[in-house]
């Protein structure tokens, strides 16, 4: 993944590695500091929920569309979540055509992994008629700019968009012959929302030299051979974990990385919740893409 984003000279690499060793990175952060995050919800009017997120130079737009479909035969009483990631050629010329496909699959699999568990999102709330109809939430992720730490940014944006998602209320009535009919509420404000408290966020820990950093910029990603993407919930549970990159890791350092991932993830979760609630309660004018 990182090789598509450019090259780094040996001197630059050494500078970054030494900086990380002394807990002072090239942009002045410590090893466990995040960059500034800007998040705005409800930015695309044609969606059920949307969010735009900037993390450093990484720019993500997420749209959630709720449609009705049939549930999986194995889980007849649950709705479905589908993730699609699109690395647009805006982000990098390498993504043109099918170039971004591999990265897109990696990201959507990472999302799939953290949403895999039943305790993440109450999918039974998305059921309309058991074994008949359910809500299918299409979560479309558009990568507008790639400035490092894509996984974390995408998971933050997805959680924000799900927080913002409003699903119209439908009423199921049975007519005289026992046929079930679905009726959509006329009131556009008659909606239900999702409980996103248990939705995990991804924290990527990149191993650089003998230490690890969170929220690596793209230069730092080039210096790192092995990364650990850790899904962390608000309560600090580890929800999904994957090692990425072409390097290997020492067991001891894995345990350390999981621990710091948990610590950072919990803070990140509570900050995001704060920010989303604050945004919703304030009557601030939308900035959109002009900001």
């Amino acid at each position: 993944m990182s090789s598509t984003l450019g090259v780094l000279s040996d001197a630059e690499r050494l500078f970054i590695v030494h900086g990380v060793q002394d807990d002072l990175r090239s942009d002045g952060r410590a090893c466990e500091d995040y960059r500034h995050v800007q998040v705005e919800t409800d930015v695309v009017s044609n969606t059920s929920g949307s969010a735009r997120l900037r993390l450093g130079n990484t720019d993500i737009l997420v749209g959630v569309k709720a449609e009705m479909g049939e549930p999986d035969p194995g889980r007849p009483k649950e709705g479905k979540l589908e993730f699609f990631v699109d690395c647009s050629a805006n982000a990098s010329p390498e993504f043109e055509g099918r170039g971004g496909e591999e990265l897109a699959i990696e990201v959507s699999n990472a999302l799939q992994r953290i949403f895999n568990s039943r305790s993440t999102l109450d999918l039974t709330a998305l059921c309309i008629i058991p074994e008949g109809q359910c809500w299918v939430l299409y979560v479309d992720v558009l990568v507008l700019e790639c400035g490092g730490n894509l996984f974390d940014a995408v998971s933050l944006a997805v959680k924000a968009a799900l927080f913002n998602t409003r699903i119209p209320t439908v009423v199921v009535t049975a007519d005289d012959e026992g046929q079930q009919e679905i009726e959509l509420s006329d009131d556009p404000y008659d909606v239900k929302r999702l409980d996103v408290d248990n939705v995990p966020l991804i924290v990527t820990l990149s191993k650089i030299g003998h230490r690890h950093v969170v929220d690596a910029s793209w230069e730092e990603e080039l210096c790192s051979l092995a990364r650990l993407t850790v899904g962390v919930t608000q309560k600090g549970t580890i929800a999904g974990l994957n090692k990425e990159g072409s390097g290997s890791l020492d067991p001891e350092s894995i345990y350390e990385m999981i621990e710091s991932g948990k610590k950072v993830g919990m803070v990140l979760n509570s900050r995001l919740k704060e920010a989303l609630e604050k945004e919703e309660n304030s009557k601030r004018e939308k900035i959109g893409f002009l900001g």
Partner: peptide, 22 residues
């Protein structure tokens, strides 16, 4: 070499349990 080259976890685990499982 005692190095871990692949690690993936699906599901929900407490930190201690995750470490123990690894």
């Amino acid at each position: 070499l005692n190095q871990v080259s692949a690690l993936t976890l699906d599901g929900h685990l407490q930190q201690q349990t995750a470490v123990q499982a690894v």
